[in-house]
Design a protein around this nucleic acid. Sequence first.
DNA 1: ACAATCGTGGAGTTAATGACTCCACGATTG
DNA 2: CAATCGTGGAGTCATTAACTCCACGATTGT
Lengths: 155, 155
Amino acid sequence: MQLSKGFDYAVRSLVFLALLPDGASAELRTIAESQNIPLSYLAKVMRNLVRGGVVSSTLGRDGGYCLRRSPEEITLMQVYAVIEGEMRLVECMEDQKNCMFSQGCTQVSVWHRLKNAVEEIFRETTLKDLLPQPTGEQRLTQLKEKERKYARAGA
Amino acid sequence: MQLSKGFDYAVRSLVFLALLPDGASAELRTIAESQNIPLSYLAKVMRNLVRGGVVSSTLGRDGGYCLRRSPEEITLMQVYAVIEGEMRLVECMEDQKNCMFSQGCTQVSVWHRLKNAVEEIFRETTLKDLLPQPTGEQRLTQLKEKERKYARAGA
DNA sequence: ACAATCGTGGAGTTAATGACTCCACGATTG
DNA sequence: CAATCGTGGAGTCATTAACTCCACGATTGT
């Protein structure tokens, strides 16, 4: 029971992109080197993220990748689905036609509970939760920003 | 993210053993054929279960395997530990010496939450939970038995 | 226009390891 | 003593995750 490297690479790359200044993009090589990921393999991973609508890419000179949504709008579930597809803990999880024991199988319910538990964590964890904790000073700035927002909303 | 066949085989075999009449044992071939598991592979799996103290084996003629404890005392966690060892969702989960990013790694906490969630289900699920639901009549018998127990305890 | 620099696409290769086999052996029982 | 169990470990096989390669189209600076 383990996560694939592709998924790990995807998450790490997305965190890297999330830490970029607003609107900035990073090219493949930069991400690969910063995260110590094989370049040509990361290319394939990023392609999936583009297709899945998680990041957008720009071609040509000075091209690169950037997040399509804000970090708190990107869940691990979306990333997992894009990279791995549907979660299948055992062979016969949904296509029980192949399972000769499907009628009397008592453990499939446990596998489903397991799947649900994992997916719940994936759903409730966003990229934002994976960003480094802001320092005290930064947190103060964030608080002030929030205050201003509420003030505007109240006005 | 998937469970190994070895673990699946182990669980299915244990359920099979749990359904045997009291004190009865089953030999390797019987289990393998009933669960459609390759004989020589199951032999290796069962060996691990014996070493792990989950089942006991008797050698010689009319030998076989039987549970060492009652089904409600055998958790999936024990079975998992015996078959797979420690759960490692990603490479750098505990030996962070290998991970060059360990100091700034923000995702390891999520992997640990994931591991805990899975292990919690494994810990709270016993073999008994995997047995086929008793029919209404059987359930009635169980209830009566329980009543008698309570009556004895109260006396 | 053109060359340099991006990501894209898919087919191909490699390597890790999960899944499975084989066989000689010791224990047990009729 | 022979038949029948599980044991042990060193294999083999097969799957697929992990990774590579290269020709291509898009974009941009000069």
